[in-house]
Design a binder for these strands. Structure first.
Lengths: 148, 148
DNA sequence: GGGGTGTTGCCAGCGCGGGCGCAACCCGCC
DNA sequence: GGCGGGTTGCGCCCGCGCTGGCAACACCCC
């Protein structure tokens, strides 16, 4: 039940940009280095995100990428859908396209029954959570920073 | 966030056996045909399940596979772990082996923070649900069978 | 202020490796 | 001897990552 590397890198990049100063343009190389992502591969991923209107970019010196919206207005689930990353563990449980299901009868498929709940919960969670939420959640030390 | 074909086929086979009369030995060919699974590939999957003591088998005429335990004593999550199918969306969120994480600092990784909850919920759900549960859940028509 | 130059994003295509599926053969049981 | 599981090995395909060339933008220099 893994997401693809492509989706993982995309989310890492989005979350990195969410942690940068809002308007700042961040070049690919910086994201790649800080997040340990192969730069050339990251390029085409960011391009896809730009085409999905999640990022905007500028070329040349001082160029780079930035979020096209505020970090609290971009949902994790939305990003994954933009990447055509399936949220469903098995094709049966896909929400929209009713993908071809290998089981003889989808209505009585026990695997579908088992996985549907997992898929629903994951989709609900990921569609509610924004980039800003994830960043905030990753910083428990903000509360205990006085202890250090 | 898909499970591998290998895991999908394994679960289909287990659930098919869970729907068969408890002690009956079911040959590979029958499972493959009914569940639309390539028979030769299914073979090595069932072998792995046998080695994990989830199935038992007998060769020769009248041979085949059966569950080594009752259907309500085998959990979906248990089967997936036996197949070395990761339950975690990203390596960071893996429970046991603390796999190598590509992020610079796992403690402050926003992706990990975002996915941890998804992983936990999925693991909880799959570790509670037995094969028997999934089969029962796939039969809402048991209630409306009188309508037909 | 116009062209040169370097920086950075934009785009197409290719090669590797592992998951997936297939085939052939061996071995135990009736 | 035949049925059916056990085992090994190979070919295909797709995710992954890389390469190379192109286009825009900023800056500099004359």
């Amino acid at each position: 039940m893994r997401i693809t590397k492509r989706a993982e890198y995309a989310l890492r990049a989005l979350l990195f940009l969410a942690q940068s100063p809002p308007g700042r343009l961040v070049p690919i190389g910086e994201i790649a280095e800080r997040e340990n992502i192969p730069a050339d591969f990251l390029e085409q991923i960011l391009l896809a995100l730009r085409r999905a209107d999640l990022l905007s970019s500028r070329r040349g010196i001082g160029g780079g990428y930035k979020l096209s919206r505020a970090a609290d207005a971009i949902h994790i689930g939305e990003a994954m859908r933009a990447l055509e990353e399936p949220l469903a563990p098995v094709p049966c449980t896909a929400e929209r396209s009713r993908e071809k299901c290998t089981c003889p009868d989808p209505r009585t498929c026990p695997l579908r029954a088992a996985m549907q709940e997992v898929a629903d919960q994951a989709a609900l969670l990921l569609d509610r959570m924004t980039l800003a939420d994830a960043v905030a959640r990753s910083r428990p030390e903000a509360r205990v920073s006085f202890d250090i």
